[in-house]
Design a protein around this nucleic acid. Sequence first.
DNA 1: TTAAAATAGATGCAGATGCATGAAAATACA
DNA 2: TGTATTTTCATGCATCTGCATCTATTTTAA
Lengths: 149, 149
Amino acid sequence: MTGNLKDRHFPDVMECWARLQRSSGAVLSRVEVRLKAEGFPPLGWYDVLLELRRADGVGLRPVDIEKRMLLAQYNVSRLIERLVGASYVDKRRAPDDGRGVMIFLRPEGEALLERMWPVYREAVETEFAAHLDDEEAETLWKLLGKLLP
Amino acid sequence: MTGNLKDRHFPDVMECWARLQRSSGAVLSRVEVRLKAEGFPPLGWYDVLLELRRADGVGLRPVDIEKRMLLAQYNVSRLIERLVGASYVDKRRAPDDGRGVMIFLRPEGEALLERMWPVYREAVETEFAAHLDDEEAETLWKLLGKLLP
DNA sequence: TTAAAATAGATGCAGATGCATGAAAATACA
DNA sequence: TGTATTTTCATGCATCTGCATCTATTTTAA
């Protein structure tokens, strides 16, 4: 059933697709396991805090975070809710837009980034990077870029 | 902070890692949206039914499904529970192992595979394969293989 | 053979996600 | 200007996932 129509693709488009999902999922779960084992929150927390640090004190709108992280709107809303609850970020009314809010990184959030970083980097190094040399990583990076929106 | 230690990697291991997660997640969600729009269940259902069809009438143990799909044990257990509830599979006691069960594909499950397949293939073609030529797909396939367990 | 360890699977509970929808403000445009 | 549309964010509800743990059975090994 798989590959009987216009089988012009190598080795089979569906195989390649399945491998993308399996391999990225497997590596992600191994990295998450390592972080959890050290008592850290999920990677999504790190990613949001990192985006905020890149914003460099200016603060971000949830809608910006949503676009940068490719997350659903309600997902961002609740992730921020948890980050506020854990005192890693502040949420204030947006000064120039009555509908919106602005999210700011707190020192506690910055500290969490600092503490997570070495564990995170080590995990990605071991579970991901160790399997590829520089040239392979570069090629992978370029190919994956073609899949981005 | 990102890339200050032994920056021998291109362009940055963390960038490559992030792109793997972003791109695979983005493509997956677009494919799932298409399936849902046609009224179909999540991809995980399809994947289990497909594994069962590949088993060709013999049936599979949940533990086999777990290993093939790289899912957590409780996740498989509950996915099967839903598939049984929806009458897509049967669950019987394993004849040779009193602890276990055997899962069998029912005709209704086979029919679901048939109905989902064209939509699924079209979605993967559009959201994934259309962005890569054959050679690129082959290269990607090989690189991703290095990340598998 | 019998006790300890490992394996297969289920499940209660808490937390997270997806969906649909709501409220409030901004923008478009007639 | 005034109304319709769009944008921003929150939330009730159902479903799904993760964790820890439980039972039952099989395997190991003393």
